[in-house]
Amino acid sequence: MNTPNTESLTLQEQGQQLSVLGAFANSEQFQMAKQAAEMLASSSMVPVTYQNNPGSCFIALNTALRLRMDPLMIMQNLYVVQNRPSWSGQFAIALVNICPKFSATWFEYRNEEDFQKGVRMCAQLKTGQNVYGTWITPEMVKAEGWGKKWQTMPEQMYKYRAAAFFARTNCPEALLGLSVEGEAEDIAGKSQPDIKPPLFKSREISGGDVVDAEKVADSPRLPVAAKIPGKSDAEIPPPHIRLMEALSCTEEELNAVFKKASGGKVDSWKKLTTAKLEDCLGNLGEMQAVLAEIQAQ
Rank of each mutant, 00 (worst) to 15 (best):
A164P: 05
M157R: 09
N170Y: 12
V141C: 11
Q90R: 10
P138D: 15
V119I: 14
P85G: 03
T152N: 02
T134I: 10
S179H: 12
K142F: 07
K101S: 10
L125F: 03
C122N: 08
E112Q: 13
W106T: 07
R161M: 02
A167L: 01
G89H: 03
F107H: 11
E108I: 01
I98M: 10
Q151K: 14
C122W: 00
F91N: 02
Q151V: 08
Y132A: 11
F115M: 12
N170Q: 15
C99P: 00
G177Y: 07
F166W: 06
G177H: 06
M157D: 01
Y109D: 12
G145R: 08
A143E: 15
K148H: 10
E139D: 14
F115V: 05
T152Q: 01
G118S: 06
A174H: 00
W87V: 05
W135P: 02
L175N: 03
A104S: 15
L175E: 10
A92S: 07
F115P: 01
G133M: 07
E112I: 12
I136Q: 06
V131E: 10
P100G: 00
F115L: 13
W150G: 00
G128A: 03
V180C: 03
S179F: 10
F165T: 09
M140S: 09
V141F: 02
V119D: 08
I136F: 06
L178S: 02
E113S: 14
A163P: 03
G145L: 05
E155K: 08
Y158Q: 07
A163R: 03
L95D: 11
W106A: 05
M121Q: 09
S103N: 09
K101G: 04
S179A: 10
S103R: 14
F102W: 02
G147E: 10
K149Y: 09
E155H: 13
A162K: 02
T137M: 09
E139L: 14
Q116K: 13
T105N: 13
E108M: 07
V96H: 00
K148D: 10
R120V: 02
L178V: 02
K101Y: 00
P85K: 05
C99Y: 03
V141T: 06
K126W: 09
L125E: 13
T169E: 15
L95C: 07
Q116F: 13
C171A: 07
G118A: 14
V131I: 12
K101E: 09
V141N: 08
M121Y: 04
P154R: 00
N170T: 07
T152S: 15
W146Y: 12
L95P: 10
G128F: 03
K159N: 06
K101D: 08
Y158M: 01
I136V: 15
Q151Y: 10
R168D: 01
W146Q: 02
S88C: 09
